[in-house]
Design a protein around this nucleic acid. Sequence first.
DNA 1: TATTGTTATACTCTATAACTATA
DNA 2: TATAGTTATAGAGTATAACAATA
Lengths: 135, 135
Amino acid sequence: MEDAVGYRLRRAQLAVFQQFNEAFAAKDLRPTDFAVLLLLSCNQGLKQSEVAEALGIQRANFVAIVDGLEEKGLVERRKSEKDRRVQALYTTRAGSDYLKELMPIWAEHEERLIARLGGTRERDQLIHLLKRLCD
Amino acid sequence: MEDAVGYRLRRAQLAVFQQFNEAFAAKDLRPTDFAVLLLLSCNQGLKQSEVAEALGIQRANFVAIVDGLEEKGLVERRKSEKDRRVQALYTTRAGSDYLKELMPIWAEHEERLIARLGGTRERDQLIHLLKRLCD
DNA sequence: TATTGTTATACTCTATAACTATA
DNA sequence: TATAGTTATAGAGTATAACAATA
């Protein structure tokens, strides 16, 4: 039981998300919001449904998340010219500025995790194994 | 982003829990229910709050879980003689019989995960790393 | 017909405070 | 006064179906 993969994953995820929330407490930002900003910053113009799928969120539930980020002025929806059905997502200037503030906090958060794991080698191993579970 | 520890943990947990639910679909059993049965089978008489804490569930939310298992006749609450405040939890005969049915399904589930990871060595590595994140 | 985004809705999970009975 | 279990409740998160606009 102690060594059940699912149980261990759940406990680890709980611990890591809690640490994330503590690190970002002053920023009023959920892990998902951060993930959207980070994803868009490297992939401007992704379709709304592409971002949702990339993060494992159903498109119906993703609407409110984008609404929130848009209200905060961090993200912008633009109707695609090629296909008028799709909303292409972009970070605003404010959004990318905000992300620049967040990156050091995130880097520190990841460093703390690496320290717990015992080093970057161990972190890489972990990521590798976690990816295998998702194929 | 692809390699953020928290993101990878979330995706992996989602995938593993989904596979668990598929494996146990015919059994009408959630991961948490199974965890309670398994934990009690090796630790009869644990306090309700001890089981809750062991599973990372708040005692207030754990009440309904025990209610459900008790209604199904799988688990039993007994007031402790030493301390009349505490509910000691035990699996019933039906509960341990049921668990015996579940164990092969669970074993198969874990085997599938081990296959994905590449072997038991990799599984042990993963468990080791996940435990480190929870200290 | 099929797809994208959306709305509405229900269900589960989680978090918090307050109550009770015991200690 | 403190603790174990309980209740109530509000807030997230998640799942599903149906609709409008567009393809």
